[in-house]
Design a binder for these strands. Structure first.
Length: 416
DNA sequence: CGCTTTTGACCAGCGC
DNA sequence: GCGCTGGTCAAAAGCG
């Protein structure tokens, strides 16, 4: 079953599918576009005008043949000229897109730098924060040193033991550069954070677009249904794991708990769930997040996933790991039982995942379907996953929805 | 033959 | 220290 899904989804990596839709060139430059730059409307207006003139020649059936031929040749020249103009505009837009991409990269690095500064100011607080609900898991320097000797042996750096995750972050603080340390700390803590998704499904596992391999099954205490353990097999060494278990009270409810961050490109079908879980994990792990912020963000995330549903998100304070639970059981169950190819239709193409060789903008890829159905909801969803910082989210959401949403300047210009 | 699933064993953390 | 529990490993079996 999984292998079938996986094979289908691997097709998304084909060169053909990796080509960005032309529409992306027009829609994604949202950071630094001035209204006067949006001259795409010129071409459309010309097209409209042409259609009008075309119509007039058809209507004017009384005109002599010579005139008609002459008129058509003029028309042809005009259209060729317009085509040339549009090509130029296309080139300009491509340049603008590159600029926007650069802007985005710069902005992102700024944000990361700021977050790193903040994390450095708060020292161990962030790491300790991840474990404040898990009892006596506060890491002391003595602990780190005693463990570091064992970690240096044949053990893997990416350990499956929670304590070792802390260890990696802490050792890095002493021995590695601050940037690398922060990355590792973040990776280690991201591995700890969990996102639980509750959904009604008769299938043994919800199709989230990823390729999973089952590596274990256990009877969990207090639940007659076994808990299955899966590991992501889309790339060797991908640390992402998930647990799948049916609810003891209502066996139609499937609880899927995700842990970790993918270290490889994801097919669009997998982007939705992976990004959602990653964004939720980011919320959990963002150092500035107060408990109320977290709850607010969690519910925002839930609305992001299924905007029309009454889905709820909660953050567990009692679980051994910080966990966000997205309860989708009140939404249409069919939304999570679709075939892999249609999963993105129910879940927004949002991003937030450190996807290698793939811009985070890939989450904003606009499909042919989306061209016919403006992706305003998807875009607002995307902003939710960019970062857990509510201020950043609000600013970007406003910017994106003002440009890509119904009030797109180009649209206005065309319609006027 | 290669990949996935199954399943018992093993390990670490935690509470008593 | 012991037992319980959750999580992982790895050999064997199953499958296409």
């Amino acid at each position: 079953m999984n292998s079938i899904n996986g094979h289908q989804e691997m097709d998304f990596f084909s060169e053909e599918n990796n080509k960005k839709p032309q529409a992306l060139d027009l829609k994604t430059p949202w950071l630094s576009i001035k209204p006067e730059d949006l001259t795409m409307s010129t071409g459309l207006q010309l097209m409209t005008r042409n259609m009008g003139s075309d119509q007039s020649t058809v209507d004017d059936g009384s005109s002599p043949n010579e005139e008609e031929k002459e008129g058509r040749s003029h028309e042809l020249e005009a259209m060729q000229a317009e085509l040339g103009k549009m090509n130029e505009e296309n080139q300009r837009l491509r340049v603008m897109l590159n600029q926007v991409t650069n802007n985005y990269t710069t902005l992102k690095s700024h944000l990361l730098a700021l977050m790193q500064q903040r994390d450095q100011r708060s020292g161990h607080e962030v790491v300790q924060r991840q474990f404040m609900d898990s009892g006596p898991a506060v890491v002391t320097d003595a602990d780190e040193l005693s463990h570091s000797s064992t970690a240096g042996g044949s053990q893997e750096i990416r350990s499956t033991s929670p304590s070792n995750n802390v260890e990696v972050a802490s050792i890095g603080e002493e021995k590695l550069s601050p940037n690398k340390n922060n990355e590792q700390a973040q990776e280690a803590t991201m591995r700890k954070a969990r996102v639980s998704v509750r959904a009604r499904s008769e299938a043994p596992m919800i199709t989230d677009g990823c390729q999973w391999r089952k590596y274990g099954q256990k009877m969990a205490k207090g639940n007659p249904c076994p808990r299955a353990y899966y590991r992501c097999t889309m790339a060797t060494g991908c640390p992402v794991r998930k647990q799948v278990q049916r609810c003891a009270d209502d066996r139609s409810i499937l609880t899927t708990t995700y842990e970790g961050t993918h270290n490889h490109p994801l097919p669009p079908a997998a982007m939705a769930m992976a990004s959602t879980t990653s964004a939720a994990a980011s919320m959990l792990l963002s150092g500035s997040m107060s408990s109320t912020d977290g709850l607010m963000n969690a519910n925002f995330l839930a609305r992001t996933i299924l905007p029309s549903s009454s889905s709820m998100a909660t953050i567990s304070a009692s679980a051994p790991f910080p966990t966000v639970t997205l309860d989708l059981t009140h939404s249409n169950p069919l939304q999570l039982q679709r075939s892999p190819a249609t999963v993105p239709a129910s879940l927004p193409n949002i991003f937030g995942q450190p996807v290698h060789n793939q811009s985070k903008f890939s989450g904003l890829q606009i499909t042919q379907d989306q061209l016919h159905h403006p992706p305003s909801l998807d875009v607002s969803a995307a902003t939710a996953a960019i970062t857990a910082d509510p201020n950043f989210t609000a600013a970007l959401a406003a910017a994106i929805s003002s440009i890509i949403g119904g009030s797109h300047p180009t649209t206005k210009a065309t319609s006027s």
